[in-house]
Write a protein that binds this DNA or RNA. Structure first.
Length: 424
RNA sequence: GGACGGGUGGCUGAGUGGAUGAAGGCGCUCGACUGCUAAUCGAGUAGUCGCCGUAACGGCGGCUCACGGGUUCGAAUCCCGUCCCGUCCGCCA
């Protein structure tokens, strides 16, 4: 949720942000209008309510006929107070509903849609397989050769976009996630294994129930949602709390399964494990002071890049355009690894600065020097996912279908240097 | 799933219809005292919304005693529903 006071003071900034995202700028005026009506009705109610309370005290002291006379008057007043209270509540609800529809104000993100990202940099050069003299296999061909990925049985048991990781595939996923966890711990993050089912208010608070609500699995019978990332649970972790950030950001590394319906992506990435309904992820999550958020964002990006260095992948960093940010993010950087068999870049990490947007929705605040409270900033970023297997297999494959294990990952695979195909 | 008991401020814990946003204690902050610390004494110590106002500090009012509804002139207190916690029983791993 955006800051109502900021909206009052600088409505043009919010309008411009909405336009840059391709969202509706008229929501700003609807909110301002609702705010004015709310304040007017609130003042009317408060005045009457104060009068009612004052008379209540007189009633308590009065005796006999005097008391009866007072009671006759207060009875009427009570009805009036109730009516005004309803009006004020309705006006507040209207304002609230409008405010919740407005996306976070962008902060530095390029204008435009999905294709209007800005490439920040490239790191490491993709291999030239033609020069090496062989046609690269895609991750599924490699994964099947290694007996690491089993799509057919995934479909048999659970349906399309489900899979089994077996043998070295299972070990490889654990290696990635454990390496990510170790790096996070070394950087001072508190490791957390989170719930993957959350209540509606938690899901709503993180901003995932807006335009992309179709992406989320819902258990109707229990009124719970399956999270698409542990960000959801970690954002809710400190909901309705006043936290202490005097010693720096509160940083958590969440390990969880992630569930996505992929409702709008029929036909996209149907081969292999690039786009699936369930995977695992280690996610960084940081609560920090609003003025530190931009710097913290760069730090999260830095830790993501450290992980990509650990697995020795060529990648680029993009500054995502406004229209492709989630509703909560003010700015987002993605790291995309090269996918040689498709001649394209594949998102492996994504780090968002949600500024105070999520925290305001979830009621996460800090105490300031002068004793008041204010919303904190929240940020998140990926440290490792199941999808990384795709990039690792394809980029480190060898002509015979074996795969070189990047050195950084070897300690997590018992020193294994090469993954060998299984014959038969 | 059934039966009880309970949810009050940062914590603990009183309050069972009338000036109680809430006693007492703990903790914390400030001050006094003491070579220092401790102890002691004094003062202060929830959040939020609105109105007024300042250079700054502020003043007034509304709301909040798990959440939602109801009764009443008036609810932390009575009634109903929901959620959560505890104990016991049952059931299933």
């Amino acid at each position: 949720m955006i800051d109502l006071r900021a909206l009052r003071d600088n409505p043009d900034v919010v309008r411009a942000s909405q336009v840059a995202r391709g969202d509706d700028p008229a929501l700003v005026d609807a909110a301002l209008d609702a705010d004015a009506r709310r304040r007017a009705s609130l003042a009317a109610f408060e005045e009457l309510r104060a009068e009612q309370k004052a008379m209540g005290k007189q009633v308590a002291q009065a005796q006999g006929e005097e008391k009866q006379a007072l009671l006759a008057r207060t009875r009427h007043l009570a009805e009036e107070v109730k009516a005004r209270s309803r009006e004020a509540e309705e006006a507040a609800a209207t304002l609230d509903a409008t405010l919740w529809k407005i996306s976070n104000v962008i902060d530095g993100a390029p204008s435009g849609g999905e294709d209007d990202y800005v490439v920040v940099k490239h790191v490491r050069t993709p291999r030239d397989f033609a020069a090496e003299g062989f046609e690269p296999r895609d991750h599924l061909a490699l994964g099947e050769g290694l007996r690491a990925i089993d799509m057919a049985r995934g479909a048999k048991v659970s349906g399309a976009r489900f899979f089994f990781l077996t043998g070295i595939g299972a070990r490889l996923e654990l290696a990635i996630l454990n390496a990510a966890m170790d790096q996070a711990i070394a950087a001072g993050f508190t490791p957390v294994i989170t719930p993957t089912l959350v209540k509606p208010e938690t899901m709503r608070g993180t901003g995932f129930l807006g335009a992309h609500a179709d992406e989320i699995y819902r258990l109707e019978k229990d009124d719970l949602y399956l999270v698409g990332t542990s960000e959801v649970a970690l954002a809710g972790y400190h909901a309705d709390e006043i936290i202490d950030l005097a010693d720096g950001p509160a940083r958590y590394a969440g390990w969880s399964a992630c569930y996505r319906r992929e409702a709008g992506s029929a036909g996209r990435d149907t081969r292999g494990i690039i786009r699936v309904h369930q995977f695992h992820k280690v996610e960084m999550f940081s609560y920090c002071r609003p003025e530190d958020a931009a710097a913290e964002h760069q730090r999260l990006l830095g830790w993501e890049e450290n992980m990509l260095a650990l697995v020795d992948l060529p990648y680029r960093v993009i500054d995502t355009a406004a229209g492709d940010l989630g509703s909560s993010a003010a700015r987002k950087f993605d790291c995309e690894a090269w996918l040689p068999t498709q001649n394209r870049w594949l998102e492996l990490t994504s780090t968002s600065n949600c500024t105070t947007f999520q925290a305001r929705r979830l009621g996460v605040r800090e105490r300031t020097e002068d004793g008041s409270t204010r919303a904190v900033a929240t940020l998140n970023g990926t440290l490792g996912t199941t999808r990384w297997i795709v990039a690792i297999l394809e980029n480190h494959q060898q002509a015979d279908g074996s795969v070189r294990v990047p050195e950084g990952l070897r300690p997590y695979l018992g020193g294994l240097e090469v993954l060998e195909p299984v014959s038969g």
